[in-house]
Amino acid sequence: MISETLKKPDIQLRKGQKITGKWHHKSYQIVRELGRGAIGTVYLCVCEQKQVALKVSKQSTSITSEVNVLKTFQKVQGDNLGPALIDVDDYQASNGYMYAFYVMEYISGERLESFIRRNGDEWIVSLLIGFTKDLHLLHQQGYVFGDLKLDNLIVSRNPIRLRWVDVGGTTLQGRSIKEYTEFYDRAYWKMGERKADPGYDLFALVMVVLRIYYPNGFNRGNNPKRTLMQKINQAVQPAPFRKLLQGIILGHVKEAIEVKQYLLTYYYQQRDKKRSSYRTLNNSDEESYYPLLEMLSVLSVSGAVYLYVTIFLS
């Protein structure tokens, strides 16, 4: 009786510690802690000279649920939706308890907010185009990501792409959201239910964008809807992008694919505007892709004029 009710302690793995699975007998050496969440801790590990990420938890059922989600993602051909699943096993700790863990591909990269701070916020739109495409694919599989937040996102290098790294909140559509974080939660802002539908993810995505502009977050206030609208108006610069974010918050935009299309159109319009400004500068009908070539041509024209002037008019 007592042994059943006694609480299983959280597990703490040390740097350099070696973990061997009970079932598949693979060994992993801990390098460092990558992140800690409500359910478990993720460590960077080395296995057969390759870097992998290992998530371990005292709640074996949560680990199993996450493995189920990752397995579903694996079946989707082409794009890989989540990190690739490498191994699932149990670890017998020295305290006598058994801890379930799984091993996945290690995605190295930078946190979204620091990436944006370094490279400028015009990157937000281009990163979101790729991300909403992935999100749409996930929604088509019948899932909703759920716990979408800055901590669960990473900008990977080669190719530069916004990716999610923790699938703990991923929920079947139509069910209640498994895991959420208040600031990103639609129901907390009283803008809808805590139920898994594509709009739930899109709402959280808007909050991700806002969190880049407001690193410390902000309070809900007496009128959450008005607070959100105000914060968007104050921080987000290009008007079309602002309109999109507000449309999502109000629930007018419900599908990830709509967001992608909208952003894509906006992106092309931006590029066309830039192009047409080059055109007027150049007075040529040819399309100009390379600013360097343009510079050269401008220089050579001015050079010819200079030569003409010096040789024939002096």
Partner: peptide, 22 residues
Amino acid sequence: SLEELPPEQRGEVMEVVDDLGE
């Protein structure tokens, strides 16, 4: 019990638990 099953079979049982919870 659930925790004593090999990880491969655990997944299917877990789906049942998830369904019940919902």
